[in-house]
Design a protein around this nucleic acid. Structure first.
Lengths: 228, 228
DNA sequence: ACAATAAATTAGGATAACCTAAAATACATA
DNA sequence: TATGTATTTTAGGTTATCCTAATTTATTGT
């Protein structure tokens, strides 16, 4: 009944949250991969979280894990911290786009409720993070977000970049150089089926942009339906 | 040779630093008191720190501990983080005087060098903390600070408040209400030897102030020599 | 359907930090 | 100086998190 929450537990819950926003359950191996620990460590932790009081996730052997409402609350709180912190590090302390993730990853577990509140206020209660992802509200409600990857668009489709993966500084620097950032509008000009490269015409840019599969699979977009 | 530094180690080093700025060595019991752990835990940790490579402190059984230059570096770095963070929480996030300590106590261990650098710049490289203590420079040099307690002054002596103890919110709120903050000039009007109360005339204030021993023993002052 | 492979779990250990209780040492004073 | 008290250390245990190696379970291709 002593609700002790460790940083590590929060990381596991956040990871399960992210995985299960794509599929039904998070497998041991997948969690282990994302967290960079051995599968055996995941089994152990997942069992602990499942038999916590209240249980933070549901787990059956060899079937993977998914969050309980209580586990989800914690995941969302951590995510809110993370995204507020990223924005804060950029806006107030002058961190660059690609630098914020690493620091936020640590701070998210240690800031107080009050810190969260102050930061949110200073930033004007933002609804989206620096990489375009929605920030859970104070009440931990998550606004909807497109689930379409740029990867899946085909020629003549138009769209807006909504968010990009935040944890790879090199990738982020690359996107910044190409000026492919949240809010950017584009049209797909060509798709090369052999190497899965997409050629984009970007609003406001002269030069066409080519993006490979490993990039387009990390970018979420919203499709703009043709009006004509 | 793997220089792994834990938060706990930093706390022990900081504590030894503070104790040895007053006396020669820090005893097991004193460290245990300040950190709120059992003496046995201190013995263990102190032994570990003394046999680290390089040793972070010097320790002989039953004799207490004192820092090596390497240990002092770490203590000063932590102290710099702490004091920069306190100021930052106040100036940028709007924390009050008495709220900053607790949050800084945790954050001091987890912020990066870069965070430290950014905060220092945003604050304009301050030399003193919010409670008046000197902030170690980037090169970890500590500027001198008076070591005279208000406690030791006697009638007609004049002085300036230099710094006050930072870790007791109630005490800090009390001082703020009395407007006894760093920089405040005063003269001792009377001393009551039975209860050790000091009566102060404070510059710019109508009402005289009475301070008991447990307060005056937590306030560092600089004496202003009489010019006449 | 069943063997080969892949994934997950159990078993057994390690480390950091803490604790309590018992033993050893230091100190203070009659 | 001798002894009682206070302090410190040692011994032995606990918890959280991680690991590797061995074992078990699941999946998949023929």
């Amino acid at each position: 009944m002593v609700k002790k929450r460790t940083d590590t537990m929060e990381d596991y819950l956040k990871t399960v949250y992210k995985i299960t926003s794509q599929k039904d359950r998070a497998s041991t191996g997948e969690i282990a991969d994302k967290l960079g620990v051995a599968p055996a460590s995941v089994t152990e932790m997942v069992q602990r979280l499942a038999s916590a009081d209240p249980p933070l996730l549901v787990y059956r052997k060899h079937q993977g894990a998914s969050l309980t409402p209580e586990g989800e609350q914690i995941a969302l709180e951590t995510l809110r911290h993370h995204r507020l912190l990223e924005l804060f590090l950029h806006e107030i302390l002058g961190y660059s786009w690609d630098q914020v993730h690493e620091e936020a990853e640590i701070l998210e577990h240690v800031i107080s409720e009050y810190f969260e509140e102050r930061v949110a206020e200073v930033l004007g209660d933002p609804g989206q993070g620096i990489h375009g992802e929605p920030i859970p509200s104070r009440a931990l409600e998550m606004s909807s977000h497109p689930e379409i990857y740029l990867h899946d668009l085909r020629p003549t489709q138009r769209g807006v970049i909504r968010s990009v993966r935040d944890d790879d500084p090199g990738f982020l620097r690359y996107l910044l150089k190409l000026r492919v950032t949240p809010g950017t509008k584009f049209q797909v000009r060509e798709f090369s089926p052999y190497d899965h490269i997409l050629y984009l015409i970007v609003e406001g840019q002269e030069e066409e942009i080519a993006l490979g599969e490993s990039a387009t699979a990390q970018i979420l977009v919203e499709i703009i339906e043709d009006a004509d």
